[in-house]
Design a protein around this nucleic acid. Sequence first.
DNA 1: CTGAAAGCGCTTACAG
DNA 2: CTGAAAGCGCTTACAG
Lengths: 341, 341
Amino acid sequence: VKSSGKITQKKIADMLGVTTVTISKALRDNPDISEKLKTKIKQIAEDLGYRPNILARGLAQRHTRMIGVIVPEITTSFFAEVVEAFYQTAREHQYEVVLMISHEREKDESDNLRYLTALGVDGILISVTRETISGTVINKLINQGVPVVFYDRALEDVQASTVTINDRQGAQSLVQNMINYGCKQIGYLGPLEHPLVVKHRFQGYQDALMANGLNTDKSIIYECQFGKEDAYQTTLDCLKNGCPIDGLFCANDVVALSAYRAITESGYSIPKNIRLAGFGNISENFFLPVPFMTVAQPTFEMGQKALELLLDEIESKEKKLKPRHLVLDSKIIIDNRNQDR
Amino acid sequence: VKSSGKITQKKIADMLGVTTVTISKALRDNPDISEKLKTKIKQIAEDLGYRPNILARGLAQRHTRMIGVIVPEITTSFFAEVVEAFYQTAREHQYEVVLMISHEREKDESDNLRYLTALGVDGILISVTRETISGTVINKLINQGVPVVFYDRALEDVQASTVTINDRQGAQSLVQNMINYGCKQIGYLGPLEHPLVVKHRFQGYQDALMANGLNTDKSIIYECQFGKEDAYQTTLDCLKNGCPIDGLFCANDVVALSAYRAITESGYSIPKNIRLAGFGNISENFFLPVPFMTVAQPTFEMGQKALELLLDEIESKEKKLKPRHLVLDSKIIIDNRNQDR
DNA sequence: CTGAAAGCGCTTACAG
DNA sequence: CTGAAAGCGCTTACAG
């Protein structure tokens, strides 16, 4: 495994009595080389199992066909699904993705950013952590000429393209639907401010209540964190002395599923006593044996579109494109069990 | 953004009137360089935001501190959690992971393998697809000197270290527990043969039934695929003319959660009519408002141990280590709701 | 303690 | 159609 080791262009060149230049060109289908020689070289390369060294190629070409992706978390199904979309879409365009996880920590996020640029990725797709508020690090990158596109969670003071979801409007029409079903006391369960998308959902909830002259009293706003346990306990507390609500809109589906358990264990029934609604349409909803409303986010489309925006920027070379802002429409799901998956 | 572009060792060297060799050594804390010069160089590098080019460094050093990871799927929580463990553990050892998804397709898997070796990762962690039965591709890699470690799903004809879970025994003691609770007609729901881990779980189920002289009749073995929909429908069918079972052991938790919905919708109650059990202890179990038995797989530990085995091989350089086979013990969870998470 | 030389494996102009 | 020269940004011996 020493001199017989990795097979390189040099080895193939020596076998044929030509230069690596010829091999390099033939392998990349450069018209400089005769068809005959090309097929011969390709054949040999194939037989020997030759694979160009990606590091060397990247170094020489100044681009790598690698897309850097930063995700706040991978064990969340929403992000796992977006990541899946990135991988599939990248592959269709002959790019590879290099995935990094920021774990919702700003420090890790900037480490990730540094690593990806040092690696020489051609562009970066990022959804910022809950902690991140300043865009200085990312702005620096953009000024160095690295294309960056935000998906789902963007930063306001950064001049970059974004792909987001119309959370406020989605939440509003969802809650409007609950009202149409007769709900009059619709509670809210979840965080109120961060991340931004959740704030928008909360606003949508308020919009709907106000438009219908319903109770927007603070007493039926149940603030909790995103954790399952916290959402579950908060719901139990809400229900321990009778049931003050006839509907519950949750910041996301994980929160709603946790509320489902608490509601059921408290002896209330869905939708008879409480109509339950979430946001996200995650695949776990399938397991619910009760009707459940939610908002379908175009997860796959988000990944696909973000990647394609980035590719546009990468491939438009010199001339910097103007940032574009795609806002994808969500779709109301009236009953999680009546849909195609 | 042209000559002012990326800042390199050369630029720093020119500023100080020294060679890149000096910069290179100083930055890597080589004792050749005086402390004074070192701190000066580091300071400048810091100020300029210098980052060594990973491609160039990898090319020169012949190693990259990158670990290649191949996962059959990323939207499955089990794999997402193992991947999370890989990222965390790698980071503790100053390695980065490069993640590829095989999508349960053997063709994609070998593409991934080729890409990772062409990239020059120092080692590979892989769980094979459901389709993969031959180990020739991977054996070739190993012979070329690339360290490979299997996690969860291994190949029998490959000489490489493995980290797996004791599925058969875990399933057996889980089913024994169901029997202790009084179950006499325990059905099985899931695939029977593939992947291998599921076959082992099915065997464990049979072991327990036979050891207790219980009915092992084919009529209460409900074969289905891993998809939620299929598991759900199969359970509905099973229950449509009365309830032939008083316990149901499922190939994994996703299957069990799908069965939960079918059982509940069919008007049966858990655990009164049917005691339900799964395998995996995935985080979604939290949402269940009924007692549910499962087997906790040491997911994080699996990722951690596999990575560490790989690191041992990478860092033991020349001398090839003998393959090691870690079999991790699973743990019975009697009620999913009474555990720390 | 510091540098000149050579190389990692590939590609990009530029000649011929 | 083919090759000699130079370079991508870094590191590894080897001298001094």
